[in-house]
């Protein structure tokens, strides 16, 4: 049984990737979910300067998931490169690491990529153009085809590291955004991110989150995100695609692969169950054995060929 997968030319020992924002700086889970067991891990989004994050409360539970409004809290590029990356690399020499970039402007994205391209530990970039929780740098890129096209093409000019683009589910035309990213040279598209959402405390008669709204994640968003991944693959069958949103078991991960994804990100489920990865890998191996699939390529996108 071969669980290897390739996202374009990017090789993964297994198709499972720890989603950005849910795996900290890669050292927090320790032995409960070791980085080297993942196909790759995506560290917390990094911005040029430190971001303290949004006013608490920053998260709450809802049916089949949670809403978060962390607000891209992160240590900033300098400390990320001087402390967080070396600490990660020292603890996880065998892990594959992807950096998630969060810029407010095109220039900030390019600045981040230029600097992080020097870091040996980073094997790919994921452009976070779909964070729903900050006023700038999130969705104003992700929902705008022209801005997305410019961002990706400028990025490809300055770095040789693969560039993945994480697209938002909150646009009427996710296929359009994926199309311009592909045309501009994106190495892969990640579909999707959290869905804007809110919760109201009926005893206090006010929104639960300090930021009023946040991003919905967890099993609640799986079917909606799966549909977008499927539509993108249908329209752009050659574009390397990564599924993201709501995977908490192997069965859901397999659905993303059948929809056309070469890899699958897992995030919120790890909060609930740190050994989700172990369960998901086990399920995948058993499923492939049962179905007679020898590799991920054997069944990737099968459901989209109908």
């Amino acid at each position: 049984m071969n669980l290897n997968s390739k996202v374009g030319s990017f090789e993964l020992a297994n198709p499972f990737i720890a989603a950005s924002g849910t795996y900290g700086y890669g050292t927090e889970y320790g032995d409960l979910s070791p980085a080297k067991e993942w196909g790759a891990v995506i560290l917390k989004s990094v911005s040029r300067n430190l971001r303290p994050g949004n006013v608490p409360p920053r998260c709450c539970e809802v049916d089949s998931g949670m809403i978060n409004s962390i607000g891209l809290a992160n240590v900033g590029l300098e400390k990320f490169m001087a402390e967080k990356l070396p600490a990660f690399a020292a603890e996880n020499p065998d892990a594959t690491c992807i950096a998630s970039l969060a810029g407010e402007t095109l220039d900030e994205f390019l600045y981040l990529a230029e600097n992080l391209s020097k870091a040996k530990a980073i094997k790919a970039f994921e452009l976070n153009i779909s964070c729903p929780n900050v006023a700038k740098g999130g969705m104003h890129f992700g929902a705008d085809c022209n801005a997305s096209r410019q961002l990706v093409s400028e990025m490809k000019k300055i770095t040789s590291i693969p560039v993945w683009v994480k697209v938002t589910p909150s646009t009427t035309d996710p296929v359009g955004v994926a199309t311009v990213c592909a045309e501009a040279g994106a190495d892969a598209v990640v579909a999707t991110n959290t869905i804007p959402a809110m919760k109201i405390d009926i005893n206090r008669c006010r929104p639960v989150l300090g930021n009023i709204t946040g991003g919905l994640s967890g099993p609640a968003i799986f079917p909606a995100s799966l549909r977008i991944a499927y539509m993108i693959h249908k329209a752009l069958p050659k574009l390397p695609l990564v599924g993201c949103g709501g995977v908490d078991c192997g069965e859901k991960a397999v659905q993303y692969i059948l929809a056309g994804c070469s890899a699958v990100e897992i995030g919120t489920a790890t909060f609930r169950q740190p050994d989700t990865l172990v369960q998901v890998k086990k399920f995948l191996a058993e499923y492939m054995d049962k179905m007679g699939f020898k590799s991920i390529e054997d069944f990737k996108g099968l459901a989209a060929r109908i």
């Binding site: 900290g24 994050g53 608490p56 920053r58 949670m66 909060f271």
Partner: peptide, 27 residues
């Protein structure tokens, strides 16, 4: 504070610090 991961990974359980910024209640 309400927590999601409880392990220091998600920064969801922030509490403001007197010196500015936030700490994670869980970690």
């Amino acid at each position: 504070e309400f927590m999601a991961c409880g392990m220091g990974a998600c920064a969801g359980c922030a509490v403001p610090l007197a010196v500015g910024g936030y700490a994670r209640v869980c970690a």
